[in-house]
Amino acid sequence: MEYLIIIISTIFINNIVLAKFLGICPFLGVSKNTSTAVGMGAAVVFVMTLSTIMTYLVQHYILLPLGIAYMQTVTYILVIAFLVQVVEIILKKVSPDLYQALGVYLPLITTNCTILGVAILVIQNNFNLLQSVVFAIGNSVGFTLAIALFSSIREQLDNADLPEYMQGIPAALITASILSMAFMGFAGLV
Protein backbone atom coordinates (compact mmCIF):
# COMPACT_ATOMS: atom_id res chain seq x y z
CA MET A 1 0.00 0.00 0.00
CA GLU A 2 2.81 2.34 0.98
CA TYR A 3 4.47 1.71 -2.39
CA LEU A 4 1.22 2.31 -4.23
CA ILE A 5 0.95 5.70 -2.51
CA ILE A 6 4.51 6.60 -3.55
CA ILE A 7 3.74 5.65 -7.15
CA ILE A 8 0.48 7.58 -7.36
CA SER A 9 1.83 10.65 -5.64
CA THR A 10 4.97 10.84 -7.78
CA ILE A 11 3.15 10.32 -11.07
CA PHE A 12 0.08 12.49 -10.56
CA ILE A 13 0.12 14.69 -7.49
CA ASN A 14 3.73 15.80 -7.24
CA ASN A 15 4.53 15.30 -10.89
CA ILE A 16 8.24 15.96 -11.27
CA VAL A 17 7.87 18.26 -14.26
CA LEU A 18 4.55 19.99 -13.72
CA ALA A 19 4.65 20.43 -9.95
CA LYS A 20 8.32 20.28 -9.02
CA PHE A 21 9.86 21.95 -12.09
CA LEU A 22 12.63 19.46 -12.66
CA GLY A 23 13.61 18.46 -16.17
CA ILE A 24 12.08 21.51 -17.86
CA CYS A 25 14.86 21.67 -20.46
CA PRO A 26 14.12 18.29 -22.08
CA PHE A 27 10.42 18.92 -21.43
CA LEU A 28 10.56 21.98 -23.70
CA GLY A 29 13.41 20.79 -25.91
CA VAL A 30 12.46 17.30 -27.03
CA SER A 31 8.70 17.56 -27.08
CA LYS A 32 8.15 18.60 -30.68
CA ASN A 33 6.79 15.20 -31.64
CA THR A 34 5.39 12.30 -29.67
CA SER A 35 7.78 9.54 -30.72
CA THR A 36 10.95 11.37 -29.65
CA ALA A 37 9.22 12.41 -26.44
CA VAL A 38 8.38 8.81 -25.60
CA GLY A 39 11.94 7.76 -26.48
CA MET A 40 13.35 10.35 -24.12
CA GLY A 41 10.91 9.20 -21.45
CA ALA A 42 11.97 5.59 -21.80
CA ALA A 43 15.64 6.53 -21.52
CA VAL A 44 14.89 8.51 -18.36
CA VAL A 45 12.99 5.60 -16.77
CA PHE A 46 15.95 3.33 -17.47
CA VAL A 47 18.73 5.64 -16.28
CA MET A 48 16.88 7.09 -13.30
CA THR A 49 16.11 3.70 -11.79
CA LEU A 50 19.72 2.53 -12.19
CA SER A 51 21.26 5.79 -11.00
CA THR A 52 19.06 5.97 -7.91
CA ILE A 53 20.17 2.48 -6.88
CA MET A 54 23.81 3.39 -7.52
CA THR A 55 23.77 6.70 -5.66
CA TYR A 56 21.85 5.11 -2.77
CA LEU A 57 24.56 2.47 -2.41
CA VAL A 58 27.33 5.05 -2.74
CA GLN A 59 25.72 7.25 -0.08
CA HIS A 60 25.22 4.44 2.45
CA TYR A 61 28.34 2.36 1.87
CA ILE A 62 30.96 4.96 0.91
CA LEU A 63 30.07 8.55 1.83
CA LEU A 64 28.41 7.99 5.23
CA PRO A 65 30.97 5.49 6.65
CA LEU A 66 33.81 7.80 5.58
CA GLY A 67 32.01 10.84 7.03
CA ILE A 68 32.20 12.82 3.79
CA ALA A 69 28.50 13.34 3.12
CA TYR A 70 29.24 16.94 2.09
CA MET A 71 30.85 15.55 -1.07
CA GLN A 72 27.37 14.39 -2.15
CA THR A 73 26.93 16.72 -5.12
CA VAL A 74 30.36 16.09 -6.63
CA THR A 75 30.16 12.32 -6.15
CA TYR A 76 26.62 11.96 -7.46
CA ILE A 77 27.24 13.87 -10.66
CA LEU A 78 30.31 11.73 -11.34
CA VAL A 79 28.44 8.50 -10.60
CA ILE A 80 25.64 9.58 -12.94
CA ALA A 81 28.00 10.62 -15.74
CA PHE A 82 29.89 7.34 -15.37
CA LEU A 83 26.68 5.32 -15.31
CA VAL A 84 25.35 6.94 -18.47
CA GLN A 85 28.61 6.11 -20.28
CA VAL A 86 28.52 2.49 -19.11
CA VAL A 87 24.86 2.07 -20.04
CA GLU A 88 25.63 3.45 -23.49
CA ILE A 89 28.53 1.03 -24.06
CA ILE A 90 26.63 -2.00 -22.73
CA LEU A 91 23.49 -1.23 -24.70
CA LYS A 92 25.51 -0.86 -27.89
CA LYS A 93 26.97 -4.36 -27.43
CA VAL A 94 24.05 -6.25 -25.88
CA SER A 95 20.99 -4.77 -27.50
CA PRO A 96 21.59 -2.75 -30.65
CA ASP A 97 17.82 -2.35 -31.09
CA LEU A 98 17.37 -0.70 -27.74
CA TYR A 99 20.50 1.37 -28.36
CA GLN A 100 19.03 2.56 -31.62
CA ALA A 101 15.89 3.63 -29.82
CA LEU A 102 17.46 5.30 -26.78
CA GLY A 103 21.00 6.06 -27.94
CA VAL A 104 20.61 9.69 -28.95
CA TYR A 105 18.91 10.59 -25.69
CA LEU A 106 21.51 9.07 -23.38
CA PRO A 107 24.18 11.81 -23.54
CA LEU A 108 21.49 14.41 -22.84
CA ILE A 109 20.52 12.66 -19.64
CA THR A 110 23.69 13.48 -17.68
CA THR A 111 22.61 17.09 -17.47
CA ASN A 112 18.94 16.26 -16.96
CA CYS A 113 18.24 17.60 -13.51
CA THR A 114 15.55 15.03 -12.78
CA ILE A 115 18.21 12.34 -12.36
CA LEU A 116 20.35 14.23 -9.84
CA GLY A 117 17.23 15.70 -8.24
CA VAL A 118 15.64 12.32 -7.54
CA ALA A 119 18.93 10.91 -6.24
CA ILE A 120 19.13 13.76 -3.71
CA LEU A 121 15.41 13.66 -2.81
CA VAL A 122 15.70 9.98 -1.96
CA ILE A 123 18.38 10.77 0.62
CA GLN A 124 16.46 13.78 1.98
CA ASN A 125 13.34 11.65 2.46
CA ASN A 126 15.27 8.88 4.25
CA PHE A 127 13.89 6.18 2.01
CA ASN A 128 15.17 2.60 2.18
CA LEU A 129 16.44 0.92 -0.97
CA LEU A 130 13.11 -0.54 -2.10
CA GLN A 131 11.24 2.71 -1.45
CA SER A 132 13.94 4.56 -3.40
CA VAL A 133 13.53 2.30 -6.41
CA VAL A 134 9.75 2.70 -6.35
CA PHE A 135 10.17 6.47 -5.97
CA ALA A 136 12.55 6.59 -8.96
CA ILE A 137 10.23 4.51 -11.13
CA GLY A 138 7.23 6.65 -10.17
CA ASN A 139 9.02 9.89 -10.92
CA SER A 140 10.40 8.73 -14.23
CA VAL A 141 7.00 7.43 -15.33
CA GLY A 142 5.56 10.79 -14.27
CA PHE A 143 8.16 12.53 -16.44
CA THR A 144 7.30 10.29 -19.39
CA LEU A 145 3.58 10.89 -18.94
CA ALA A 146 4.02 14.65 -18.79
CA ILE A 147 6.32 14.88 -21.80
CA ALA A 148 4.17 12.49 -23.88
CA LEU A 149 0.97 14.42 -23.14
CA PHE A 150 2.70 17.72 -23.76
CA SER A 151 4.18 16.66 -27.08
CA SER A 152 0.84 15.42 -28.38
CA ILE A 153 -0.65 18.83 -27.60
CA ARG A 154 2.28 20.63 -29.19
CA GLU A 155 1.85 18.67 -32.42
CA GLN A 156 -1.64 20.18 -32.66
CA LEU A 157 -0.34 23.65 -31.80
CA ASP A 158 1.69 23.72 -35.00
CA ASN A 159 -1.54 23.99 -36.94
CA ALA A 160 -2.97 26.74 -34.78
CA ASP A 161 -3.16 30.26 -36.16
CA LEU A 162 -1.23 32.28 -33.58
CA PRO A 163 0.28 35.76 -33.75
CA GLU A 164 3.95 35.56 -34.60
CA TYR A 165 5.25 36.56 -31.18
CA MET A 166 3.22 33.82 -29.49
CA GLN A 167 4.51 31.03 -31.71
CA GLY A 168 6.96 28.46 -30.36
CA ILE A 169 8.12 28.80 -26.79
CA PRO A 170 5.49 31.25 -25.43
CA ALA A 171 2.64 29.09 -26.68
CA ALA A 172 4.38 25.99 -25.36
CA LEU A 173 4.81 27.52 -21.91
CA ILE A 174 1.17 28.56 -21.72
CA THR A 175 0.16 25.05 -22.77
CA ALA A 176 2.40 23.67 -20.02
CA SER A 177 0.68 25.97 -17.57
CA ILE A 178 -2.75 24.64 -18.47
CA LEU A 179 -1.48 21.06 -18.30
CA SER A 180 -0.04 21.81 -14.88
CA MET A 181 -3.42 23.21 -13.77
CA ALA A 182 -5.07 20.00 -14.93
CA PHE A 183 -2.63 17.97 -12.85
CA MET A 184 -3.48 20.06 -9.79
CA GLY A 185 -6.85 18.38 -9.95
CA PHE A 186 -5.19 15.22 -8.66
CA ALA A 187 -4.32 16.89 -5.35
CA GLY A 188 -6.13 15.20 -2.51
CA LEU A 189 -6.18 11.87 -4.31
CA VAL A 190 -4.12 10.24 -1.57
Binding site: L18, Y165, L173, S177, S180, M184
Partner: peptide
Protein backbone atom coordinates in the same frame (compact mmCIF):
# COMPACT_ATOMS: atom_id res chain seq x y z
CA UNK B 1 2.47 31.47 -6.76
CA UNK B 2 1.63 27.88 -7.65
CA UNK B 3 3.15 25.81 -10.45
CA UNK B 4 0.89 26.87 -13.36
CA UNK B 5 1.57 30.54 -12.64
CA UNK B 6 5.29 30.04 -13.22
CA UNK B 7 4.78 28.62 -16.69
CA UNK B 8 2.24 31.20 -17.75
CA UNK B 9 4.24 34.20 -16.45
CA UNK B 10 7.42 33.11 -18.24
CA UNK B 11 5.37 32.44 -21.38
CA UNK B 12 3.98 35.96 -21.39
CA UNK B 13 7.34 37.59 -20.60
CA UNK B 14 8.96 35.83 -23.57
CA UNK B 15 6.01 36.70 -25.79
CA UNK B 16 6.34 40.36 -24.76
CA UNK B 17 10.04 40.36 -25.56
CA UNK B 18 9.39 38.82 -28.97
CA UNK B 19 6.64 41.35 -29.62
CA UNK B 20 8.93 44.27 -28.74
CA UNK B 21 11.66 42.91 -30.97
CA UNK B 22 9.22 42.43 -33.83
Amino acid sequence: VLAPGAFITLGFIIATMKWLKE
